[in-house]
C-alpha cells in the first residue's frame, strides 16, 4: 500500500497549479525515497522534474514501488477542493487502478475523500546528464516572474545574457525593444531578496517566453528561483520546496536557423 500524508497540504495544491498548464498527464513514480515525476510538454521543448522526498511528509509509507499515471487537470480539480490549511493524504493499494485523496480540515471536523481512476501512461523517460553550469543565478522568484511577464509583451523570445557584471534579460518585437539588467547584490543581508550570480563563463541564450511564463506558475512555492545556464544546453529553472524537495523546469534554447 502507498500512503503519503502532508500537513502542509497547500504544497500539493501549488505543485499542481505549477504543472497543470504545461503538462496534461504525468506519472507519479513512488518508492521508499519519495515521489518523483518527470514529463515533457506535448511539444517536447520543456520538461518538468518534480521531487518530493519521503522525509518531507508527515507520514509516508510505500510498501512496493508504484507508478501512478494521472490526468493532471483532474488532479488539479480535486486539489482545488482542498482548503489551504487542510492536511492532504494521497493513498493507493498496491497495483491499484485508482488513487484516493483525503483532505482533513485543521479541526478534523471535515474530512473529504476523492477517488480518481489512474491511467496507463508509457511516457518516455529522459536521462538528464549531471551538468556543471557556466552560470547560475539565484534571485527572488517574484522578480523573475515579473521580468518574464513584462518582457513577453515585447516579443515571443527572451535573450538571457549572464556576465560577471550581472544578468540582462532582453526582448524585441513590433513595439520595440526592452532590456532589464540585474546587478549582483553587493551586501547580501536578506538572502531571499538578493541576486547572486556564480559565473565561470559568460553565457547568452535565447528562450521562448511562453514556456518561461508557464514555469513561473511555481513562484508561490519558493521565495527564490535559481536559473542555471551553459552554452547550447537547456536552461534549468529550479524552485526549491522547503523541507521536502524541488520542482525543476528544463527548456531547450532557440538557435539561429
Amino acid at each position: 500500500m502507498f500512503e503519503a500524508r502532508l500537513l502542509r497540504g497547500s504544497i500539493l495544491k501549488k505543485v499542481l497549479e505549477a504543472i497543470k498548464d504545461l503538462l496534461t498527464q504525468a506519472t507519479f513514480d513512488c518508492d521508499d525515497s519519495g515521489i518523483q515525476l518527470q514529463a515533457m510538454d506535448n511539444s517536447h521543448v520543456s520538461l518538468v522534474s518534480l521531487q518530493l522526498r519521503a522525509d518531507g511528509f508527515d507520514k509516508y509509507r510505500c510498501d512496493r514501488n508504484i507508478s501512478m499515471g494521472m490526468n493532471l487537470n483532474s488532479v488539479a480539480k480535486i486539489l482545488k477542493c482542498a482548503g489551504d490549511k487542510d492536511t492532504v493524504t494521497m493513498k493507493a493499494q498496491d497495483n491499484a487502478d485508482t488513487v484516493t485523496f483525503v483532505f482533513e480540515s485543521p479541526n478534523q471536523e471535515k474530512v473529504s475523500d476523492y477517488e480518481m481512476k489512474l491511467m496507463n501512461l508509457d511516457l518516455e523517460h529522459l536521462g538528464i546528464p549531471e551538468t556543471e553550469y557556466s552560470c547560475t543565478i539565484r534571485m527572488p522568484s517574484a522578480e523573475f516572474a515579473r521580468i518574464c511577464r513584462d518582457l513577453s509583451q515585447f516579443g515571443d523570445s527572451m535573450v538571457i545574457a549572464c556576465t560577471k557584471e550581472g544578468v540582462k534579460f532582453s526582448a524585441t518585437g513590433e513595439i520595440g525593444s526592452a532590456n532589464i539588467k540585474l546587478a549582483q547584490t553587493a551586501s547580501v543581508d536578506k538572502e531571499e531578496e538578493a541576486v547572486i550570480i556564480e559565473m565561470d563563463e559568460p553565457v547568452t541564450l535565447t528562450f521562448a517566453c511562453q514556456y518561461l511564463n508557464y514555469f513561473t506558475k511555481a513562484t508561490s512555492l519558493s521565495p527564490q528561483v535559481q536559473l542555471s545556464m551553459s552554452a547550447d544546453v537547456p536552461l534549468v529553472v529550479e524552485y526549491r520546496i522547503q523541507d521536502i524537495g524541488h520542482i525543476r523546469y528544463y527548456l531547450a534554447p532557440k538557435i539561429e536557423d
Binding site: S46, L47, L126, K254, E256, D257
Partner: peptide, 14 residues
C-alpha cells in the same frame, strides 16, 4: 529567424 530546438537534442531517452 530563430529555430526552437527540442529536448531530445540534449537529453537521451532512457
Amino acid at each position: 529567424p530563430l529555430k526552437q530546438t527540442k529536448l531530445a537534442a540534449y537529453f537521451t531517452p532512457t
